[in-house]
Design a protein around this nucleic acid. Structure first.
Lengths: 292, 292
DNA sequence: TCATATCTTTGCATTTATGCAATTTTAATT
DNA sequence: AATTAAAATTGCATAAATGCAAAGATATGA
């Protein structure tokens, strides 16, 4: 059996249709179609039920899926472990970071890093969701969280304080907030329910009356941009805000969060990954904009 | 990473050189060469040390080998399990048997079987060594042994009695043997030391004086053929001997052996494999030539 | 040191796989 | 029943992988 067909099988199983699977495998859908037929022929059994709106695993396909996933995991582990043993200061490093970090902080840092290690090529993947470092979708993850997943290793480089911000236009209209008790006397840009997993927002949601919330957004960046229009105040971590908003007072509920640099244990001793981890650690700890 | 390259990697690691690996993978050696380079490039590390007389794994290669073997096992398991679920009476079945069975018994049986199940194609692999049923080098193994490996399942179809044989020419010269006590009064065709794992031969080796052994051979068939020339007597299981030799007396030391039909547990319920197993069971149990 | 045998590496013709674009299928919707 | 929209197939030109054969390496033994 051509083992590589397992990759195509997995892509189809996950995507549910050929076109999406083809994108994942970067190939044409007709190629994926033909390779699936090859696999089915070689295994002499139908792996998918062809429905009008996609491919669905047959029982035999489900069976294969179990093994295919183990095969993939094993291959990923091999790749990681070999990459982890490479102490040379060259090659690619993939960093994933949330929007604000990727836009406001990384560009300057990486420009500096490139001067020191011109042989290391860095790719930035903007995302805040749990990319699969197992599958090496990224090598280093920069995340703001209180508790990173325990299958990753790394260090807490900063603690991020939260503040209440507002722009000058709104401040002129509504005056300054000076104590958290007055919270319901102001208009607010609130978080979308999807953000309530963040402790600070959870507290906010429970303590601010709904009618005080003039607008919501599903990303911190969008919240900041809305606050910049002067619609209301906003509660945000320090890293999310630039000079267009004025820092009014500390916001302590939720205990803030921490900025973590994370990587997979297998990759910890890779030369290039270690180099970038160390460089970023220094960059972030020396970052004046992020000190409360 | 192209997963199929793992197969090439394994073949090179096992064969120790490209040409032999190419045969295993049935491809040209230059293809294997190019694919190895591709793999090394993709993993960005050297997997083999090129020596003048072959390829030897580097430490990184050793590392990969562990994972590659797991990948292969997983893929083999998947193939077996899917094949095992196929209840249809069609497709290929690979049977491995020792020489004598493959030459003297199987042809007639398989001709009959083909009439009943024309859709099942049977391949016979002549071998007595431990083919890897895990890797599906064969689906059914026919083996003469007292105790088959416990990772296979199957049934004992016969017990094979052992006898002392001689051809008429030798009998005229030396007379008939009638009791085992006279064993050292005759000339013998003996087993090569490589056959001493067989209990009957082991006993023979310990109880027959070396000077009585006029000739040796490393396969039972060769022993039979030598005895047919009239050089001496020979001790053999009943299945190994045809009419050219006269059966003189039973040979009980070593308890004889049993004829087993074996398959992999995963394949037990495959339609075609079940059909052939059952057919062969009947064929062998009804075989008059094999009844002591 | 040269011949030798074995294995690796490369150029080129051929086969095979792929992408593209057009066509067909399928089932849900009008 | 016709329409539609999304996806699966298929034909054909192009690109990529492969086999073949010849050349280059490399240690071993004369």
């Amino acid at each position: 059996m051509n083992l590589d067909l397992i990759n195509d099988f997995l892509a189809i199983a996950r995507a549910g249709n050929l076109s999406a699977a083809a994108v994942q495998r970067n190939a044409n859908h007709s190629t994926i179609y033909r390779r699936l037929h090859l696999l089915e022929e070689q295994l002499n059994c139908r792996l998918f039920e062809r429905l009008h709106d996609g491919y669905q695993l047959t029982p035999a396909g489900e069976e294969l899926l179990v093994h295919a996933q183990r095969i993939e995991q094993e291959a990923d582990a091999a790749e990681r472990i070999l990459a982890g043993k490479d102490t040379s200061l060259q090659g690619e490093v993939r960093v994933t970071a949330p929007e604000n970090i990727a836009y406001e902080y990384l560009p300057a840092y990486l420009e500096q890093f490139h001067k020191i290690h011109p042989q290391i090529r860095v790719s930035v993947i903007v995302s805040n969701s749990d990319l699969d470092l197992n599958r090496r979708e990224a090598d280093i993850a920069i995340r703001a969280t209180k508790q990173p997943p325990d299958y990753l290793v790394g260090r807490r480089v900063l603690s991020l304080s939260w503040f209440i911000y507002g722009n000058s236009k709104y401040l002129r209209r509504a005056g300054k907030i000076s104590t958290i008790k007055d919270i319901n006397n102001f208009d607010w840009i609130g978080p979308d329910p999807g953000l309530l997993y963040i402790a600070a927002f959870n507290w906010f949601h429970k303590n601010v009356r709904d009618e005080q919330i003039v607008s919501r957004a599903s990303t911190l960046n969008a919240m900041a941009k809305q606050a910049e229009t002067g619609m209301g105040l906003v509660v945000l971590p320090v890293d999310q805000v630039d000079k267009k908003l004025t820092k009014l007072m500390a916001f302590t509920p939720g205990d803030g969060s921490d900025l973590w640099l994370l990587t997979h244990p297998d990759l910890r001793f890779s030369g290039r990954i270690k180099a970038l981890m160390e460089f970023l650690t220094n960059a972030f700890t020396g970052e004046k904009r992020l000190i409360g």
